[in-house]
């Protein structure tokens, strides 16, 4: 009995953010002390469909940035993690990869901002992309370490002695074997970009308006219905991804 009640409470708590934001995003005139808004409207959501609206542009920008970061960091991470995994002082290299990973993104942004100012990338999409890569790429390198096991090395050698070139081995052996991990890494690095606020704000100087930047802007304007809508736009795509594969969001150990 106690277990059932606790389960119900937990389930409610987990679903609450989605329901609450859903209500805020369609509510108008939410005056104290009523729990529900007085009117409901789909106007905010319709804005999304209207061409060139702030929300639409920002959604598109977030998707493009996320895809860019995910593709670049997954590909580069896969190739370079192999080199690191086979390096003589593997652990020292890996420790270096942990640095950007543990630093607060915004503190990292403070330290590197000068570079982006000098190169004119500050406030540009390309600058934010590069900044987010600094976070996502080391993650990918660490992520793929588990793939380059002794067994994979032996399979690679076996393929070689059977007469295959490096490219053939990559195509027919390594990539098929790594496929599940490549997908997981792709989505996790996508989410690093998708969720990022502090670094984006600092390097994008408010000009590169991704969804998290928009959420903060609406919160500052006390526009809670728009903030809730933008929040939902951030939360729903990964929630849908969960249906496909839980591991895209959380891989365990």
């Amino acid at each position: 009995m106690g277990r059932k009640i606790l389960t119900a409470i937990l389930a409610t708590a987990i679903l609450l953010p989605f329901l609450f934001f859903g209500m805020l995003s369609v509510g108008q005139a939410w005056f104290y002390p009523s729990v529900l808004p007085q009117r409901f409207t789909l106007a905010n959501w319709q804005e999304l469909l209207a061409g060139q609206s702030e929300l639409q542009v920002s959604l598109l920008l977030s998707v493009i940035l996320g895809l860019g970061v995910a593709i670049l960091s997954t590909v580069a991470g896969f190739v370079i993690s192999r080199e690191i995994a086979r390096a003589k002082y593997k652990n020292r290299w890996l420790l270096l990869a942990y640095w950007p990973f543990v630093l607060s993104p915004v503190v990292l942004a403070i330290l590197v901002q000068r570079f982006f100012l000098l190169t004119g990338m500050s406030g540009e999409v390309i600058g934010v992309l590069l900044g987010q890569l600094i976070l996502a790429f080391p993650f990918a390198v660490i992520f793929f370490q588990s793939f380059w096991s002794h067994e994979v090395l032996q399979l690679e050698q076996q393929s070689q002695t059977l007469g295959a070139t490096a490219v053939y081995t990559l195509q027919k052996v390594l990539l098929p074997l790594a496929r599940p991990l490549l997908l997981i890494c792709f989505f996790q690095t996508f989410l690093i970009s998708w969720f990022e606020y502090g670094l984006t704000q600092f390097i994008g100087v408010g000009k590169v308006k991704t969804l998290p930047i928009l959420v903060f802007k609406y919160v500052n304007e006390a526009n809670s219905s728009h903030a809730a809508l933008a929040s939902l736009l951030i939360m729903l795509p990964p929630a849908l991804l969960l249906w496909t594969n839980k591991k895209f969001i959380f891989r365990g150990i």
Partner: peptide, 14 residues
């Protein structure tokens, strides 16, 4: 797994 879809900024707002 659902709460893992909420980034820090949105959690603060919530």
């Amino acid at each position: 797994y659902l709460p893992l879809t909420i980034p820090a900024l949105v959690m603060g707002f919530l």
